[in-house]
Every structure is written in C-alpha cells, then in structure tokens.
Design a binder for these strands. Structure first.
Lengths: 184, 184
DNA sequence: GCAATTATGGACTGTACAGTCCATTATGGC
DNA sequence: GCCATAATGGACTGTACAGTCCATAATTGC
C-alpha cells in the first residue's frame, strides 16, 4: 500500500492536484477505482497523505544532513544535495509542499494548515541543528537560531521555486552560497 | 480595457488559473463571453497578460524602492512594504509569479518561460540597484552583485510563500532581517 | 433616418472529470 | 467442493467547464 502511496505522490508532485486525474492515479498505483476508493477514500485525502509522506522525507533529510557534523558543513551538504536533485532529477516538479501552498492554500483551508505544519516542522529541524551547533560553540552566543531557521526554511522554498523554472546550477549555487553567508 | 485586465488579474492571482472559471472572469471584468473572447482570445492568453501586468508592477516597485537612497535602506523599505502587504492585504494570495510557477510550470512550457523571464527581470532590478550602490561605495569592492540579486529574488519568493500560509509579521521580519544581513 | 457594421446576451455543444454502483470474479473457512 | 465474504472491472451518473454560435440590440457613417 505504501508503494501505491509513493506512486501517487509522484503523480501529484509532478502535476499538482487538479490536473492529476483519477485515471492517472489508478494507472500509477495499479489500483482500479473501487480499490482506490476503498483504500484512500477520496482524491483529496490521498493528496494530503502524499503531502504528509513528502513532509516526513523532507524533515528526515534535513535532520540527517545536520546530524554528526559541523552545522555549516551540514547545511552545505544539504543544499548541495538539493541543487543536485533540482538540476539532475526529473525536471520542474519543484517542492511538493511549495506547490501545494501555491495551488491550494487559498481555496482549501485544510491543505493550507498542512503546509503551515510542514513548514513549521522543517523550521524546527533547522532550529534543532542550529541550537545544537550553538551549544557546541560553532555559532556566536547571541545568534537568533529561530530567525535563522525561519530564514533557511523560506530560502529553500525560494531556491526550489527558482530552480523549478530555471534549473541552472550556477544560479542555484549563488543562492545557496549567499544563504550560508548569513550564518556568519 | 486595462480595468478589465486588472480585475481579471485579481481573480487569477487569488484563485489560480484552473479554478478561475470563465463565469468568474466575466463577472469580474463586466464582459460577457462574446466580448471576452473578442478582447482576450482565450482564458490562457488573458492569464499570461495578467501575469505580465503583474510583472511590470513588481519590477517597478523594486526599482522605486531602490531609487535615490542607500541600498540597505531601499531594500529594507521594499521588504517592509512587502511584509505589510502580506500581513494586511487580502489574505493568502501569495505572489502571482510564484503561484504560476507552482501551478503551471510543469504542464505549460510557455507559462514556465514567462515566469523565468519575470524572475530574470526582478533579478536585474535588484542587480541594477546593487551595482549602483557598489559604484557609490556602499558595498565592498569584491561583492558579487549578481549572486546577491539572485539570492534576493529567491528569498522574496520564499518569504511570500511562507507568508501565504502563515502571515505572521514576526516570522516574516525574521526572514527579512536575516536576508538583509547577507549584504554585509 | 436608414443601412451596415459592431457589440452583446445567453443558449448550446462537447468534453473531462470525481465519485458510485453492481455484476462478476477471486479468496478463504470448513 | 461449497458457501460466504471480499476484491475487482468498468459502465454509469451528474456536474462543471471552455469555447462557439446566432439572434437581437446598439452604434456608427452618411
């Protein structure tokens, strides 16, 4: 069942909610309509589950990159990986969370709330890493780790949006490099 | 006719392309279907014209804020105004350009190209202001103004996306303040 | 004032879609 | 092997929509 969710995530991520038809989703998951509705209840429910699945992965990747290394190195590792994925991966999908925010937030209050929570968890993952780094003495005493975490969260969304329409490594590297500059 | 375009822009900006029905657009513009198609040819054409109109405004606001004052003050003015608009304005519209990128870029190559061009013009407006500031001696000699302009362009998209689902002034101020920090 | 052109209203068409339903097929208990 | 239960296929329904079309109304040129 998780394989079906993963396939559906790919469809929604690439095409967005509205343009993903049930036929697309049934083809991708291998389920027919009856089984689809038995398993997932509705297109929107599946979309929100896909979003949650994506959120888990995003948070985990941040935590993994920041774990067990200096925070600057961790952030660079994370951003370099992100840029690799944007430049080399299947093109123009952007960030599922950001896509959901743009496409649904105004018309679907529940979806907006999920996006808000996803961004909060991403912010918390950055905040944790930064806080630990400060405790290790890697950052100045007075640095505002919450502000930095918020900045990184927004910055990544910006980077991914720009990368979606212009997956140019040099431009994305400029953005990432300047972002890292803010830690100092 | 520009009034009709402005009204249509508001509809597309708020709801996105797909969920804006022709009935919505005719109601907003005051045109009936016949006049609508005579004037704008198709829903998509109108959408792209609305996007262009929005782009002009965005670029002009950046240029105006950076004109005739120190670049740090100009950027702060711009970002403060943006945050005011996000927090106080009609909620959760986000940036039309960013919305278009998220909603259409994957499925409409032409729209993606327009977004790419809009972002390039925004980047150029920042780049101009930064370049002039460097000539005035406000920035260090070796500063990479293109990288900074790219960073600001992405940062604004990130700020607006976060603000779309969580229009919290304190959080947005944190992001803006940290962004400005990167100039030093 | 009238004819020719242009704008307007709104009915209409064809299509695409999410979700439902039931007849058929497969599965498992015994 | 047989019955009860569960999964499956795919036809079907109702709705919403973009775009077209034409009959009528307004406007313009003279």
């Amino acid at each position: 069942m998780d394989a079906a969710l993963e396939s559906a995530t790919r469809v929604f991520w690439a095409k967005g909610f509205e343009p993903s038809s049930l036929d697309d989703l049934c083809a991708a998951t291998g389920l027919n309509r009856s089984s689809f509705y038995a398993a997932f209840n509705s297109k929107r429910d599946l979309y929100l589950r896909a979003l949650q699945r994506y959120e888990e992965g995003s948070v985990a990747r941040i935590a993994a990159a920041l774990e067990g290394r200096p925070v600057r190195a961790g952030l660079k590792l994370f951003l370099d990986g992100l840029i690799d994925a944007v430049v080399a991966g299947p093109g123009r999908r952007g960030c599922f969370i950001g896509n959901c925010a743009a496409e649904m937030a105004r018309l679907d209050r529940g979806a907006a709330e999920r996006v808000r929570r996803s961004l909060a968890r991403i912010e918390a993952a950055f905040g944790d890493g930064l806080e630990k780094a400060r405790a290790r003495g890697e950052l100045a005493r007075g640095v505002d780790t919450q502000a930095l975490a918020r900045f990184l969260t927004a910055g990544i969304q910006g980077l991914r949006l720009v990368g979606k329409v212009n997956p140019d490594r040099a431009a994305l590297n400029d953005i990432a490099r300047t972002m890292l500059h803010c830690l100092d």
